[in-house]
């Protein structure tokens, strides 16, 4: 079912909307959540919470891309769950690996009193992504948005894992420079 139809059902407050979302985007949501929380049950809870969140927010929202809207919600819920799990000392290898990589992007200085506003960082990230080549951007998004493994990205690209590692490493370096240039403090 097309996004617009599902959104229309949500606006009509029809419960069929949730079934449609589940059928259309269920596995998509699960794959995002599972990569972050590394646990099927946790992932299922995130996905169900995401459906609920969509039900609560549409209307008044009318997302242009339900897929991206839903994906962002699932991802945020999964990160929240990751935070909770992480503080309980349970580890999730995939995210730990990603965070280690992202640490390389962080500018050296750290002034906790002047953290940059989220909106400013988002704009900076969008500008940064716009300046990347299409290929670099897709690899970056697959890795740090979808939390895909390098192996999976290499398969998608029909290239060697090493080539993906190299591209990611260069992109991280560019991100670090972009953050530094704009005086971003995370």
């Amino acid at each position: 079912m097309e996004d617009q139809h599902i959104v229309a059902l949500l606006w009509e407050r029809s419960e069929r909307a949730i079934d449609s979302i589940s059928r259309t985007y269920g596995s998509y949501c699960m794959s995002i959540a599972e990569r972050i929380v590394c646990d099927r049950e946790d992932a299922e809870e995130c996905v169900n919470d995401a459906y609920l969140r969509v039900w609560e927010t549409v209307p008044p929202e009318r997302p242009q891309s339900l897929k991206a809207y839903l994906g962002t919600i699932v991802r945020n819920l999964a990160i929240n769950r990751y935070r909770r799990v992480h503080t309980q000392k349970r580890s999730c290898d995939r995210v730990s690996e990603l965070l280690d990589e992202l640490t390389q992007c962080l500018p050296a200085q750290c002034d906790w009193d002047s953290l940059t506003d989220d909106m400013v960082i988002r704009n900076c990230l969008n500008r940064f992504l716009r300046e990347l080549s299409s290929r670099e951007r897709r690899v970056f998004v697959r890795r740090y948005w979808y939390a895909d493994s390098v192996t999976d990205i290499a398969k998608l690209l029909h290239t060697k894992e090493n080539a993906v590692y190299v591209m990611l490493s260069r992109t991280r370096q560019k991100l670090k420079e972009a953050l530094k240039r704009e005086g971003i403090v995370l």
Binding site: Y69, T72, L102, T103, L106, Y144, W145, L186
Partner: peptide, 14 residues
Amino acid sequence: QALRLFELIGEIDA
């Protein structure tokens, strides 16, 4: 900080 960056990457343009 990395987690915050990871989180904000989730909010890039659709």
